[in-house]
């Protein structure tokens, strides 16, 4: 219920009267991510394979709403002993987490258009997580869907008349589902350019 309410805010803004003449932007970003909590237990270490796509509309001078898609890929190799139902298993484990957040986002900007503009953002939506372990000649994998939240802080840097750089830090939190919970902190850098819509 709370998720629906959170989703309703950016959608309402997008459909409001003030959104009729908004500017549209595509954003493409690359990032590094550090796993936290349970995610770190499974795949420790920084991920260098993180990509994001944002489509957003500036509905007010200081507000944009949009949708965000991402891929965050974590992997690790370990030879630790795992215990499952009283059976100890040791081998070279190739562990993977591929996370696909899909969110509705809202950002609130400080400053004036055309300036360097810090922003606070918040995303809510869902996250598909594909977790996999290859060990010996066996593979254990599953896919889980999670309710996901992503607070974000960043800054937009003007770059020509139709494009902007942006850097941001985002915390992705995927709520527990099927006894799995995922979270990681990402640092992203990207470019956004103005377009005529979808």
């Amino acid at each position: 219920m709370k998720t629906r309410a959170l989703l309703a805010i950016p959608i309402a803004l997008l459909l409001s009267d003030g959104a009729q003449a908004q500017d549209w932007y595509w954003g493409l970003s690359y990032g590094v991510a550090t796993p936290t909590s349970d995610t770190k237990d499974f795949t420790e270490g920084t991920s260098w394979r993180n990509w994001g796509i944002d489509v957003l509309a500036v509905v007010r001078p200081n507000t944009s709403v949009g949708v965000s898609f991402g891929l965050n890929a974590f992997n690790d190799v370990t030879t630790e002993v795992s215990s499952i139902d009283g059976v100890e298993i040791q081998g070279t484990q190739f562990r993977y987490i591929n996370s696909f957040p899909m969110m509705v986002t809202i950002r609130e900007y400080l400053g004036m258009p055309g300036d360097i503009r810090p922003f606070l953002g918040f995303g809510v939506g869902t996250q598909l997580v594909k977790q996999r372990v290859d060990v010996g000649q066996w593979r254990i994998s599953d896919n889980t869907w999670h309710v996901a939240l992503a607070p974000e802080v960043g800054v937009v840097l003007p770059f020509g008349s139709e494009a902007k750089w942006f850097v941001s830090g985002k915390y992705n939190y995927a709520a527990r589902a099927s006894d799995r919970q995922y979270s990681y902190f990402g640092f992203n850098i990207g470019v956004a350019w103005q377009t005529d819509g979808f």
């Binding site: 891929l71 040791q90 081998g91 591929n98």
Partner: peptide, 25 residues
């Protein structure tokens, strides 16, 4: 960007027979 991202989902992997050895007790 999506294509590049997906292509990098599963890096690494088995490079020797030893890495396929498994001990279960």
């Amino acid at each position: 960007g999506v294509w590049l991202g997906i292509m990098s989902c599963y890096p690494g992997g088995v490079t020797s027979s030893e890495q396929l050895d498994l001990v279960i007790t």
